[in-house]
Design a protein around this nucleic acid. Sequence first.
RNA 1: GUGGGUAUCGUCAAGCGGUUAAGACCCAGGGUUGUGGCGCCUGUAUAUGUGGGUUCGAAUCACACUACCCACCCCA
Length: 418
Amino acid sequence: MAINAPKGTKDVMPKDAYKWHYIESEWRKICAEYGFGEVRTPVFEATELFNRGVGETTDIVQKEMYTFKDLGGRSITLKPEGTSPAVRAFIDSKQFAEIQPTKVYYDTGCYRYEKPQEGRLREFHQFGIENFGASNMLADAEIIDLGAEFLRRMGITDIELHINSVGCRKCRPLYRKALQDFLRPKYDCLCDTCKSRFTTNPMRILDCKSQEDQDLVKDAPLMIDYLCDECRTAFEALQKHLDALGIDYIVDPRIVRGLDYYTKTAFEFVTTKIGAQGTVCGGGRYDHLIEEVGGPDMPGVGFGLGKERLLLLMDKCGSFMGTKENPQVFVAFVGDAAQEYALALTKELRTAGVRAEMDTQGRKLKGQLKLANSLDAVYSVVIGDDEIANGELTVRNMAESTQEKVQRGSLIEYIRSK
RNA sequence: GUGGGUAUCGUCAAGCGGUUAAGACCCAGGGUUGUGGCGCCUGUAUAUGUGGGUUCGAAUCACACUACCCACCCCA
């Protein structure tokens, strides 16, 4: 009985790995340019972290976490998102005592028990950045700018930036009440899920997919009309900053993020090109998360960006996705003496930093060159008794089907010069 | 958790109640002896997801199960 990869997981095989390497190295590059440093946290955390961080009422906590007891009886959870662990590490390391803000990025796997579909897996991977300690909207703008710039560099087109403000502890309760007052008369007409949302999270009713509910909430009050002075001023400042950065955006009052910790800024980069799960990157501000997780009262802002969705989208956009690391030289040989000679030469090339390959299957010369061809080697070196005797190697240019003699001593230089 | 769809060689894919279950790709080898790609030839005692039904006869029909895909919910 064969064992397959668990439901909702995918292997990345060498034929695709170079694409991952590409986005990962570009990600590190841009983060460094923007002044973010990498943070690596464990794949698992104490369950309590997510209960407090992500929020007890969220779907993630209520039904999607991989939670288990370890052998010491501790409740452990595979991280379902990257922000809470980054916050925990920030607090754990006492980084809050240093000069602020603290700007970190991560590249991590995340785990959620969901029904897999296009652009959604149980193990998925995300890039993320966080700015801890900055309450100024310049920080939010910088975060969004990095996301926009990264997506641009990845060749993404036809993507929209939607922004919204979800208010704060002062104004959100007032809005929530206004919304409930508005919906109360229509309660009986709401769909079943929205009936339960009415008390738990009425703001979610706004982006319910059912047409009937959409009609019902068409004239519902919107959070942006209920923002307190502080939140409204902040939202205006953010827009001003984005204008200054030349970043297009759409104010979308219906964005309601699914994690409880968001305050003020909420944003998403969305596309329709990769199926139903079109949010490639989403994030926002969380002014109380750090405190919630046990740290000082400090604000934060950040985003998460799905690597699988990014790759899907890059593919759709025909983006450059890196290059395969094909051999620069394939070392072919004829005869036993040449075999040892070839082995040593291959090592010499590799030691010099040249991607070199040779056959290990005992193929005949013809088969070796065939292999070189299918590996897409740039050159093949053919070694036989003659070559060993006079120290001149036959170097074949595979694409042009031409070959010439090259002194063994100048082989590396020859390869590099091309 | 709720819907819908699909299951035939490693991959793609014919087949529509009676066939030795096509074909293509991939892979291996050959085309005489140290030269790949294209074309040609040969080969691969390992394909009808599983289970029981209907039938003289099932890959083909109905059902159950399982797996995967897509969508809802929610999110990256």
